[in-house]
Amino acid sequence: MKKIVIAIDGHAGCGKSTTARLVASKINYLFVDSGAMYRAITLYVLQNEISTDNSNEIIKYLENITLSFEINPETRKNEIILNGKNVEGEIRGLRVSNNVSKISAIKEVRSFLVKQQQELGKQKGIIMDGRDIGTVVFPNAEIKIFMTASIEARAARRIEELKNKGESFSEEDIIKNLEERDHLDSTRKESPLKKAEDAIVIDTSQLTIDQQVDKVIALVETKTESL
């Protein structure tokens, strides 16, 4: 089977990363969670008490940040490494979620990460999810998918995710966070969240993760058979 690039974009909490990770595992592709990269930089900013409003200071500190991924031997998941430390758990908290869209809007931060992401895709056989993968990172990807879901469905998933980590937040707080992120992601000047013209839309509101995975794999099989 010929290796291709699969780009998945969409709103927060619609199942992009989980679906992409499972698809990658099933078809033996490299999975890259681009959102984890932005979250890791956000975590670095918060840990070092840099003001999230001080973009100049944040840009200056980028040279101190090294990011990579490693496979967790127990879960077989690709996890983010920030300056030599696995921070996969830390980047998923609400504090990072509340600030990541602001950090992601900084042009220099996006340029810093897009360059790394594009290097990863040169060998093909990669599936990456995020906000601007099909429009900026891989505009020539063989498959582009745009995932969305109702705010209620996304909030329920995020609550369950946080619950599994031992964290508890009200539905109201989660919906507020998602709405704020949607607004910031879609209206930012640099690489706003939007559907690529040739992207296939998948509404995951009523779909299980397995159904999402099956839909994506079906698209991959159809595409690779035609190449």
Rank of each mutant, 00 (worst) to 15 (best):
H183S: 14
D210H: 11
E172R: 12
D198P: 05
R188Y: 11
A155I: 04
F169Y: 15
E160L: 15
I143Q: 01
S150Y: 06
E171K: 15
I209R: 02
N177D: 15
I145V: 14
E142Y: 06
E167W: 00
E142C: 04
A149Q: 03
S170C: 08
R154Y: 01
E179Y: 09
E152R: 12
E197M: 11
K144S: 10
D203G: 07
L184W: 06
K194P: 07
P192V: 12
F169L: 08
E160H: 12
A196F: 04
I159R: 09
S168Y: 11
L184N: 13
E161P: 02
L193F: 04
S170A: 05
L193V: 03
D182C: 08
S205K: 02
I143C: 03
I209E: 01
D185Q: 03
R181V: 00
S168I: 07
H183T: 13
I175W: 07
E160F: 11
A149I: 02
T204L: 01
G166D: 06
S170V: 07
S168W: 00
D185K: 01
A153W: 02
S205R: 06
R154H: 04
I159C: 07
E171I: 09
S191F: 07
E160P: 00
E161I: 06
N164A: 11
A199I: 02
D185R: 01
E160Y: 12
D198C: 08
D182L: 05
S186A: 13
L162I: 03
E179R: 15
L207P: 01
E197L: 14
T208R: 06
F169S: 09
R181K: 11
I174K: 02
K194F: 11
K165F: 10
E160K: 15
L184K: 14
R188E: 08
D173W: 00
E190S: 13
F169T: 00
L178Q: 07
L162M: 13
E160C: 09
D182W: 06
L178D: 08
D173E: 15
K189Y: 12
T148G: 00
L184I: 14
A199E: 06
L184A: 12
A156K: 15
A199T: 09
A149P: 00
S170D: 10
D210W: 03
K163Q: 13
D198R: 06
V201D: 09
A199V: 07
A156S: 15
T208H: 08
D185V: 01
E190F: 11
I143N: 01
D203W: 05
R158A: 00
L207E: 02
A149N: 03
R158P: 00
E179T: 14
I174M: 10
K144P: 11
K165M: 14
K194V: 07
K194I: 09
R157Q: 11
E161L: 03
T148H: 01
L193S: 03
I145L: 10
I174H: 05
T208Q: 05
T204N: 03
N164F: 10
D198S: 12
N164M: 13
E171V: 06
K163G: 05
N164I: 10
G166S: 08
S150P: 01
L178E: 04
I145C: 05
Q206N: 14
K163I: 10
A153T: 09
L193A: 05
F169K: 07
G166F: 05
I209T: 11
K195W: 02
H183Y: 15
K189M: 10
K144T: 09
E180I: 15
M147C: 04
K176M: 13
N177C: 10
D203F: 04
I145P: 00
S186R: 14
E161D: 14
E171D: 11
